[in-house]
């Protein structure tokens, strides 16, 4: 598959059609999933209606993590096979992942308010998501700080890979920390086994988020490739101008 996307031109041709298709798929899945999530699915016996926030919070958490893993793979390909497209893919996924991580934190806080009575609860998973969010910020800050695009791509790839290796360690240490300082038994966010009637809207919403994220990522990759072409052409123009 990687070789199919090998050269940017074929990628541009393919993504020209894939981007709108994915966007349409996302819209369709949202149309299908939202009524279930908001109306037809049953309220939680403890939390009542607020469990509906789960259909936004959980997909955001999944894809914030999923995108970082995908960035890790793209970074590996970029470092080992020096693929131009892999750099562009990792760079295009980062903002989407960062926004999803932020969305996950905010919806977690909104969900926690009625459930726990506070805007922010240092729950193990929310804390790990906060660390992941700062990792995204660091990744984007590194890209912004380095002028030479090629060097920035490789350095960011190293940072992303080391971050990926550390995710399980950070996750383990935060869980260990949470159990160490375990406050009174607190209702875990969505901890109870998910009622099957809730599962289908959750999966549909997750699919909708996935298509939306993929479409936005492809859009980002297209603009990054156009940007490189534009800057290179302008550079050549400036140099050859009499």
């Amino acid at each position: 598959m990687i070789t199919v996307f090998a050269n940017p031109d074929r990628f541009m041709a393919l993504s020209r059609y894939l981007t709108p298709i994915l966007a349409a798929a996302a819209a369709a899945l949202f149309a299908w999933g939202l009524p279930q999530a908001l109306v037809t699915s049953p309220p939680d016996y403890q939390m009542g209606e607020t469990v509906r926030i789960m259909y936004v919070h959980v997909p955001a958490a999944w894809w914030a993590l999923g995108l970082y893993a995908a960035m890790g793979m793209a970074s590996f390909v970029s470092l080992v096979w020096r693929h131009v497209l892999a750099d562009v893919a990792a760079r295009a996924m980062a903002p989407v992942g960062a926004v999803l991580a932020a969305l996950c934190l905010i919806t977690g806080s909104l969900w926690g308010r009625p459930t726990w009575g506070t805007w922010w609860e240092w729950d193990a998973r929310l804390t790990s998501m906060l660390v992941l969010f700062i990792t995204y910020i660091g990744y984007l800050a590194l890209w912004a700080a380095i002028e030479d695009a090629q060097r920035a791509a490789r350095l960011a790839a190293i940072l992303c890979l080391v971050g990926l290796i550390n995710l399980p360690i950070i996750r383990f240490s935060v869980d260990w920390w949470y159990t160490l300082h375990q406050p009174a038994s607190v209702l875990r966010l969505g901890g109870s086994a998910i009622d099957p009637a809730m599962l289908s809207p959750l999966l549909i919403m997750a699919g909708a988020f996935a298509c939306a994220a993929a479409s936005i990522t492809l859009l980002g990759m297209r603009s990054l490739i156009h940007r490189r072409q534009a800057l290179a052409a302008e550079l050549r123009l400036a140099r050859s101008a009499p």
């Binding site: 660390v131 700062i134 590194l142 940072l159 971050g163 550390n166 950070i170 240490s173 935060v174």
Partner: peptide
Amino acid sequence: VLIAVLVLPFFAPPIIF
């Protein structure tokens, strides 16, 4: 400052333990 924001996520485990 850039180093700080790059490295702080990795400081989490040593700080915790």
